[in-house]
Design a binder for these strands. Structure first.
Lengths: 214, 214
DNA sequence: TAGATTGTTAATCGATTAACAATC
DNA sequence: TAGATTGTTAATCGATTAACAATC
């Protein structure tokens, strides 16, 4: 994972650009469904609310995907952006914390994110093995590290209670996992080589509250 | 909600600042729990990873909450930021879509977000009234508008399937709701006076995938 | 008072937008 | 070829950081 890919030849891509990538792909996916074959940055601008200039700048961070005088081929661009984000590969995920939210996320991943596979589910002993998700049993947290030694695991979804968050995180990091999808409303302390994507529900709700009062 | 509050005397506060507010409050809340009474921007900087300069700039968008030579009183600042975000008020929420995710969110709000009250729950007829959350029955979507006429409703949590998202959104907007907490992985089309806070799970997961491949 | 730390103005940096030459 | 639209360089705008006078 450290070859000199398109992403790395150029100087580091900025955070705002990366944050926009999934949305580009999502819109292109919609266009594909509607049978649209090509699109110009101007049309995409109208659709997405970014300037055409920004769209072209964003894409040119990764390569020249368009054609002068023509625009972009929708399916080609969709695929390219997918590749840039690594969505051409498969990922094995474990779910840590299998309450309502953990179950919802496992269901979501299973149903909508085909290249992400639920490899294992972990929770405290009294919840462990009392429930089951498809063909995956819920195991005791204590067996997490051993499990990761035995099976490939690329990321962990953290859906444990606030109070368990840092401890669960430490366990997962200790097991060698490098990607965390964090739903715990806590900012986790992490080593540098582990990437954590936060879904801070509480922050999000409070921001909504702010805007209602503007 | 249009008085000349502190937020509005000064020129419009920028989006990045607003996004940081909930996180400030969260950290201050932690400090309070630990019994810390005062904190300087320098200490907070260490803790949160923003520069001290940025912290002072951010706060001074809303007023002068500190004291030269002393720093900030933790509990006072916590409360002020809460006020700025409108967290001194109560909000009535309806949950639209009561699958696993809707149930998880209702549970989360009920347990952790005390000033947000679950006023009603809506889903399609065959799910309606088959389940129940605390003292709230699940009603048919068709009754949503009438419900909002009768009861105060400040926001709607959308947790319906992708395919139903825009329709559910239209229903909610038609019922006069001005705040939407959107979990549907779809960008909703909205009138200008409705604010929508998105939790795009799919985008978030794909961003994580990107970073794993850097 | 002296020391500390804010509030605020000025300087820098980075991201967005505009412009246009390259080219399909 | 003429028209359209990209890729890319240059200009602008906004956000972050630095600096320092005000003041507790």
């Amino acid at each position: 994972m450290k070859e000199n890919t398109a992403q790395e030849k150029k100087k580091r891509v900025s955070k705002p650009v990366i944050k926009r990538l999934p949305r580009y792909r999502r819109f292109l996916g919609e266009l594909m469904k509607e049978g649209v074959e090509r699109i110009s940055s101007a049309k995409l601008s109208e659709l997405m609310g970014y300037t055409a200039s920004q769209i072209r700048q964003d894409l040119n961070n990764f390569g020249a995907f368009g054609q002068q005088g023509y625009g972009y081929k929708v399916d080609f661009l969709y695929e390219q952006i997918g590749n840039i984000m690594g969505l051409d590969k498969e990922y094995y995920i474990i779910v840590v914390g299998f309450g309502r939210l953990g179950q919802a996320m496992a269901g979501y991943i299973d149903q909508y994110e085909k290249q992400f596979k639920i490899a294992g589910i972990f929770d405290v002993p009294d919840k462990a093995s009392s429930i089951e998700f498809k063909d995956v049993y819920v195991s005791d947290m204590d067996s997490l590290k051993a499990f990761c030694k035995k099976h490939r695991v690329d990321m962990a979804v953290l859906t444990v209670p606030r109070s368990e968050a840092q401890h669960a995180c430490d366990t997962v990091v200790d097991a060698g996992i490098k990607g965390i999808w964090n739903f715990t409303s806590v900012d986790l302390k992490l080593p540098e080589d582990v990437y954590c994507e936060n879904v801070h529900m509480s922050d999000s709700l409070h921001e909504l509250s702010y805007h209602l009062n503007e």
